[in-house]
Amino acid sequence: MSNLTKGIAPSTSGHPMVRAEGVHKSFGLAHILKGIDLEVNPREVFCLIGPSGSGKSTFLRCINHLEKISAGRLYVDGDLVGYRQKGDKLYELKETEVAAQRRDIGMVFQRFNLFPHMTALENVMEAPVQVKREAKAVARERAQRLLDRVGLGDRTGHYPAQLSGGQQQRVAIARALAMEPKLMLFDEPTSALDPELVGEVLDVMRDLAEDGMTMVVVTHEMGFAREVGDSLVFMDDGVVVESGHPREVLTNPQHERTKSFLSKVL
């Protein structure tokens, strides 16, 4: 419907967009992820739900290497995240190589994390100009178009502090889209919003899904997961408890833990 992104780059390789094989993550003694296996296909909206502390946000942050995984393998579009494999040895990627990997992966945070010293337009222009060395005029034109698409074409000169939470989060989505990513990660994008502002952000995400963007969404919005999601995973205590089509899992959960979680949030 709305062409939020012009021609999303199809996965060139025929790989799944994200593949996790036995991913573990520990912070000191805390064992957060205890062997996650999953696959996210291109153009899929993949929802992660679960109680807080279940490791879903941590897993999301591993996908763009904001967190280093402790064991297992994690691939994005066929490439190992954060490492290079030669034979059976793993080599850490250099900082610039990690940055290059992250260019193609957009991320939206629970607390927006807009740059407060820049206007909405400057926020969206920043990465293309700095990272891709794009001409300012080109970046500005795209930023204006993206802000129009998320319904904020008249707010380009506003600083984040002058915008509502919902507006800030929409700017944050536009900022991530400006890098023309092949994958978008959403870390509880509506959890910090007033209830009446949740809808405007979900609408933008729905448009994005209809455009065929591959999305991994950590969320507590079961309605969104049911309507927009293609797959859903319920995580608890660092493991995948149950997965399947959102409607299946949400209406007919098989596992006791899923049942008790859903009975509390639905």
């Binding site: 763009n64 904001l66 900082e95 610039t96 940055a99 290059a100 992250r102 260019r103 992966i105 957009g106 991320m107 945070f109 607390r111 994390n113 807009l114 740059f115 920043e126 990465a127 700095q130 990272v131 944050a172 900022r175 991530a176 890098m179």
Partner: peptide, 16 residues
Amino acid sequence: EGQTEASHALGMTRSQ
């Protein structure tokens, strides 16, 4: 810290 994370997630290097 969220500021650093956001700009890293956009592909900016540490010096940028």
